[in-house]
């Protein structure tokens, strides 16, 4: 019985974590989506500034995301669109990380 117990403990410590690619992707997607959503609304709450030519500008740097996320704006609706882009990018990236990780673990076995 003692031998079994030592065996149990060895198994416990020798186990290698497997990532659930779908779950990992989903989590990263939600995190990235929320990041874009919160960052956009945070700038909206802080407010923008007026340029010398009289235009009111909010978050000009974050606005550059629209180069990748077509349709994205620093506005409330833009933050929702940004959430979906962030979610999609995070999900794809997370799933890819999970998949590659598991492949490498299999290969190293």
């Amino acid at each position: 019985m003692a031998a079994n117990q030592i065996n149990d403990e060895e198994k416990l410590f020798s186990g290698i974590l497997r990532l659930n690619a779908k779950v990992f992707g989903l989590v990263l997607g939600i995190v990235l989506g929320l990041l874009v959503f919160v960052a956009t609304n945070w700038l909206l709450l802080k407010g923008g500034h007026r340029t010398p030519d009289g235009r009111y500008v909010v978050g000009p740097h974050l606005q550059l995301l629209s180069q990748f996320f077509i349709g994205y704006r620093v506005s409330f609706w833009g933050s929702i669109i940004g959430f979906f882009y962030g979610f999609a990018l995070g999900t794809l990236s997370g799933s890819a990380i999970g998949w590659i990780y598991n492949k490498i673990v299999d290969w190293r076995k």
Binding site: G15, L17, V105
Partner: peptide
């Protein structure tokens, strides 16, 4: 279970 550091870093 232990996370495979090399695999995670590579991925």
């Amino acid at each position: 279970a232990r996370m495979d550091s090399f695999a995670f870093a590579t991925a």
